[in-house]
Write a protein that binds this DNA or RNA. Structure first.
Length: 563
RNA sequence: UGGGGCGUCGUCAAGUGGUAAGACACCAGCCUUUGGAGCUGGCAUUCCCAGGUUCGAAUCCUGGCGCCCCAGCCA
């Protein structure tokens, strides 16, 4: 059973499926679906659902459909279906030929609605939205029957057909299921099945002016597609009795709805409405801003599909509602993947010139550098060295504290892959700013080791002044300053917690020459800094732009913070 | 106050009556031509609380407490 090569951990949904398989339910089939509404971009929370549904299908040798829940023409756009397809694909999942739309089933849904009317289980109501709300009752009081609840079947049939034919204005009538206005479950108090909406649908055009609601469309779409396990989020738990009621009244295939807790991540938000607000108010540049938790934002940031799938697996699936996953786990998954695969390169983000006074003026040497110590197969490359190099400004201190292992006056360090150098002199401008360091090198240390085996505490990355390529680098940090962005001061909302320093733009950075022809697909580690990728939108041949996907673990930085 | 859920380490999360997995985070040490990676060790005598059943309970029973969701012609 289920050779789960991914070794996905057990969870309550898998237990349900295991049990169903044992009892022979659904003829041993497992068929799931990912049902996004094409009204926005996908985010990491959707990724959890995608990995869950497609992962279940994969592990149980079943199938997973991609179905667009396009029942509300007022909100949905073609642009979103394209981005959703791209994102699901990018994450590594394939729905093969099973790309479906709830709108494909509008005719069938209509016929089924007619059947319910004929069975006395649905009726046309003339109450308006406000009246329906009043009649619905409250959480503690039962509702009242609509005065139109007991119309004859003939009248209902006639009215419903005329609704379809466009004889009535928007909002004037609805078709409702005839269940129980006194039900303690509000969803069962004669829920609306169809509303009149004279709106053009991006797939059915003007064919329809009545559109099914979620409750009426979703379960039946599942049924039509032969879905066995309809996995959705917790807020639909209360809808399950209704989901079941419809398929039972119709006597059609009955998928099982199972609810799990949606993903919440610390230091960010998942609500489409709030993400939209971030874009509209300019807190971020766009939906695919690398700080956004959208799939497109993560992609642009440099996240790999593999790291996201790994993350989705590690967080598990459960019903605890208020669970918030620490964003550090997502970052860990990325580092773990990139550590194994990223090419190591040298990039100096804040350059400080170093002149090696005893190195010949015009000499240029090339050193062989390992591309990835984690994977020998990635080979080596040659990097040029000369008398003038840039090092990181932060790698030098005139008056270093105790545990500072880097360069300081009189101190010797190693330039990675090259030579040991010793700081001889500090040159400052009139304002006292350090503008250059004069060092000497030890010719014996070529390659980074000396015959006398002497050791140095620090190893610095560097780049040859005359060979370096200039670049812009964007450093990203958490979008919100607080783990819970909604924890805002009185009278303010989550935008008050936006991290003003979530983006730092560095220009005049210097990177090794080989990076001139990097592409967005290159997985890079800037030595001692972190993992970076070329920005797919803004980088050009004239001006390279790199995004920091995630920093390296920084124990030195941590020590400094602690003082 | 109606209905539906959930409460196990700082954070996710296994556990399904036999004596608290794992991961992230954190701490300590080793190692290191990335203060990266890797390695080693530490990290819930206790599972929301209180009773009860049992030789034995996070798991069963009873009663509390806390948190979340539902009153769209959104999904």
């Amino acid at each position: 059973m289920a050779e789960t090569e991914s070794k996905a951990p057990s969870n309550f949904i898998r237990e349900i499926i295991d049990r169903d398989l044992e009892t022979g339910k659904n003829d041993g089939r497992v068929h799931t679906r990912f049902p996004p509404e094409p009204n926005g971009y996908l985010h990491i929370g959707h990724a959890k659902s995608i990995c869950l549904n497609f992962g279940l299908a994969r592990d149980y040798k079943g199938k997973c459909n991609l179905r667009f829940d396009d029942t509300n023409p007022m909100k949905e756009e073609e642009e979103y279906v394209e981005s959703i397809k791209r994102d699901v694909n990018w994450l590594g999942f394939d729905w093969e030929d099973r790309e479906f739309y709830a709108s494909d089933y509008f005719e069938q849904l209509y016929e089924w609605a007619v059947k319910l009317i004929k069975d006395g289980k649905a009726y046309v109501d003339d109450l308006n939205a406000e009246e329906i709300r009043e009649y619905r009752g409250t959480l503690t009081e039962p509702g009242k029957n609509s005065p139109h609840r007991d119309r004859t079947i003939e009248e209902n049939l006639d009215l419903f057909e005329r609704m379809r034919n466009g004889e009535f204005p928007d909002g004037s009538r609805v078709l409702r299921a005839r269940i129980d206005m006194a039900s303690p479950n509000i969803n069962m108090r004669d829920p609306v099945m169809y509303r009149i909406l004279h709106a053009r649908h991006n797939r059915t055009g003007d064919k329809w002016c009545i559109y099914p609601t979620y409750d009426w469309a979703h379960g039946q779409s599942d049924s039509i597609e032969g879905i066995t396990h309809s996995v959705c989020t917790l807020e639909f738990e209360d809808h399950r009795p209704l989901y079941n009621w419809f398929v039972e009244q119709l006597g059609v295939h009955h998928p099982q709805q199972i609810e799990f807790a949606r993903l919440e991540l610390s230091h960010t938000i998942m609500s489409k409405r709030k993400l939209l607000k971030l874009v509209q108010e300019g807190h971020v540049a766009s939906w695919d801003d690398p700080r956004m938790p959208t799939i497109s934002g993560l992609r642009r940031r440099g996240y790999t599909p593999k790291s996201i799938r790994d993350f989705a697996e590690r967080i598990g699936v459960a019903k605890r509602r208020d669970s918030v996953v620490d964003i550090a786990l997502l970052e860990h998954c990325l580092r773990e993947d990139l550590n194994l695969r990223a090419r190591r390169v040298m990039a100096v983000l804040d350059p400080l010139k170093v002149t090696i006074e005893n190195y010949p003026e015009d000499k240029v040497e090339e050193f062989e550098a390992v591309n990835n110590p984690e994977n020998e197969a990635d080979g080596t490359r040659m990097i040029p060295f000369s008398r003038e190099v840039y090092i990181e400004r932060g790698d030098f201190m005139e008056d270093p504290p105790k545990k500072f292992f880097r360069l300081a006056p009189g101190r010797e360090v190693r330039l990675k892959h090259a030579y040991f150098v010793t700081c001889k002199e500090v040159i400052k401008d009139n304002d006292g700013n350090i503008v250059e360091l004069i060092c000497t090198y030890d010719p014996e240390s070529r390659g980074g080791t000396t015959p006398d085996k002497r050791r140095v505490k620090g190893t610095l990355h560097w780049v040859s002044v005359r060979h370096a390529v200039e670049a812009d680098v964007r450093l990203y940090d958490h979008l919100f300053i607080k783990a819970d962005p909604n924890d805002a001061p009185e009278g303010e909302d989550f935008t008050a917690n936006v991290n003003k320093e979530s983006l730092t733009i560095l220009s005049g950075c210097r990177v090794e020459p080989g990076l001139a022809d990097a592409t967005h697909d290159d997985l890079l580690q800037f030595l001692r800094h972190g993992y970076f990728c070329l920005d797919e939108k803004d980088s050009t041949a004239e001006r390279l732009v790199f995004n920091r996907s995630v920093g390296l673990r920084d124990t030195w930085g941590k020590m400094q913070k602690k003082g």
